[in-house]
Amino acid sequence: MSALIFLIIFGFALTSILGLVASGIDRKVTARVQYRVGPPLWQPFIDIIKLLGKENLIPSGASKLAFLGAPLVGFASVVLVATLLWKNNLTPAQTLGGDLIVVLYLLVIPAISLMMGGFASKNPLASVGASREMKLILSYEIPFSLAVLVPVIKAGFLIRLGELINFQAQNGAVAGNLSGFIALGVALLCVQAKLGLVPFDISEAETEIVGGPLIEYSGAPLALFRLMKNMLLFVLPFFLIIVFMGGFKVAGWGLLWSVLKYVGLLVVITVIRNTNPRVRIDQAVRFFWGPVTAFALIAVVLAFLGK
């Protein structure tokens, strides 16, 4: 029962508020970079509420169960990951329900739900978008797994998140080493792709396939997908902070430092997204399997050498 209350307060409420604020900041910064005034900070909240009041359209001939179930499952998985991360972060000693591998696997579910939603739309553009999403997963999964192994190697082959946080509390953040720093950079690029942000927004590509898997979505299901994506904007950097940067401290001055870590990551993500054009899917695959994987391998080798 206490776990469920924790889920509602931290996993859902806090994470979604933080995610929506982060999305607001991201949009504001993007606007400033493009010499626009930009929307107010609370615009993402308004968007979600507005979408909830809109009509729900379902493409004819589509499986209603798959079409409406997909956003539910994707949203739920993000809430679950957020709960696990918060629990491990706040009380590293008592781990609840999941370790590093579990989180890695749970983080694929949002992408799966997007694909299932796209497939269920009976729309060729959605199918094309969903297939690109899958190819993107194939491409970034290799460097992402390698990068996340660096903290595991550093900590002496521990895979519980609580143990990783404790290890970093005693020995300094993983990102403070050369290998950890390179791995963090690699992981950050993969997170960019996981978030579906430019230059890796290939699966949505509004100007080309009109939103890809989201093309047929409207109303409440679209609101849920939007909320899921905004929550991921907090959850994924949060995961990197736990694994590479010693966790998100909430007591005293630690809180300020933690917020700085997060904002730092968010700024890097926003800057990348504002200074790059969208790549093609084959370019993305080649990019992740080529140089990014090479850097990830270098990081792993350096970690073995103790650097």
């Binding site: 469920l4 509602i8 809109k54 729900n56 539910l72 949203f75 709960t83 849920l224």
Partner: peptide
């Protein structure tokens, strides 16, 4: 927890015009 989260999602659905 996953079922709980799906339930929250369902509540959000209900808040809308599902």
């Amino acid at each position: 927890l996953l079922v709980g989260a799906v339930f929250i999602g369902f509540l959000i659905f209900l808040m809308g015009t599902i």
